[in-house]
Design a protein around this nucleic acid. Structure first.
Length: 271
DNA sequence: ATCGCCTCCTGCGCGC
DNA sequence: TGCGCGCAGGAGGCGA
């Protein structure tokens, strides 16, 4: 469920609440996430201090003094910081208890999320090492996108959702960015012009930046660490708007499936 | 190498 | 009210 803006919203919410806190207890109620939660997590984290919380792609990197806890929220993952005494909820699979009596809880109903530990550079972790560039830094640009797309027959929408190409662009923002760039989502990536990709790069950056500023998008259940929804849903121009008029031309927004994912676009504006 | 399909899991909304 | 179905913001792994 969370795409880059939701993960970044989570990071910003969590970091001030966990930074400089010491772990005094760890409870793993259900270790069967996408990959098993490390069985020695308790001993690893005990008495360690959280130094910072960073993000790479949709991974949260919780840096401790001796290593990094890598957290992926999958489709339904949430992190929240509770006060001592607050009841545990259904699907709270992992809890970190801090010495100040606050508790960091990882909740994930579908359990597509993941938690890893590494003592080394987290960017070298096998799940992160081959990721493409961040969308909001200079490495993601027209030349790069044009170059890596040549010869590719995959549709442009799943292409930009491929984390080897660029990270952080999930199903909502892929549709939104392609609408803004006026590119039909089913076009072969290799057939998209340099000029169109220039607009797409700009559109991806705009939509992600705006979504972060709005605290992410809440479709069904995304909440920030304070329990607030993200407000970007009202800014969505095509996602979830099948049958509604296009905000640009009035044509009917169409829904289709591409790479097993729901895809929304304006058949007139997007070519 | 690339592509498209399947899978993991739970919950919810819909039509009947 | 209940049931079955399809769908959901991710992404690894498979066979072709």
């Amino acid at each position: 469920m969370p795409e880059l803006p939701e993960v970044e919203t989570t990071r910003r919410g969590i970091e001030p609440l966990v930074r400089n806190k010491y772990v005094e207890r760890v409870l793993v109620h259900n270790a069967s996430l996408r990959w098993p939660v490390p069985s020695d997590l308790k001993t690893t984290l005990l008495s360690q201090k959280v130094c910072s919380v960073e993000r790479r792609s949709k991974y949260l990197l919780m840096n401790f003094e001796q290593g990094t806890l890598i957290i992926h929220l999958g489709m339904t993952g949430h992190l929240r910081v509770c006060r001592s005494g607050e009841e545990r909820r259904k699907h709270d699979h992992v809890e970190l208890f801090f010495t100040d009596r606050s508790i960091l809880r990882f909740n994930d109903s579908r359990r597509f999320g993941a938690i890893f530990w590494t003592n080394a550079d987290p960017l070298q972790h096998e799940r992160l090492i081959s990721l493409g560039p961040e969308p909001l830094n200079g490495l993601f640009n027209t030349d790069y996108l044009f170059r890596v797309s040549r010869g590719r027959k995959i549709a442009v929408k799943p292409f930009i959702m491929d984390a080897h190409v660029v990270v952080g662009v999930g199903n909502i923002y892929a549709s939104e960015a392609l609408f803004r760039a006026r590119i039909a989502p089913g076009r072969q990536a290799g057939q998209v012009s340099r000029k169109a990709f220039a607009l797409l790069v700009q559109s991806v950056q705009e939509v992600l930046t705006e979504a972060i500023a709005a605290g992410g998008t809440t479709i069904r259940d995304f909440m920030d660490t304070e329990g607030r929804p993200g407000y970007f849903k009202q800014e969505l121009r095509v996602y979830g708007r099948a049958g509604e008029p296009c905000t640009a031309c009035g044509s009917t927004i169409t829904q289709t499936r591409l790479g097993q994912r729901s895809t929304y676009y304006c058949p007139k504006c997007q070519r």
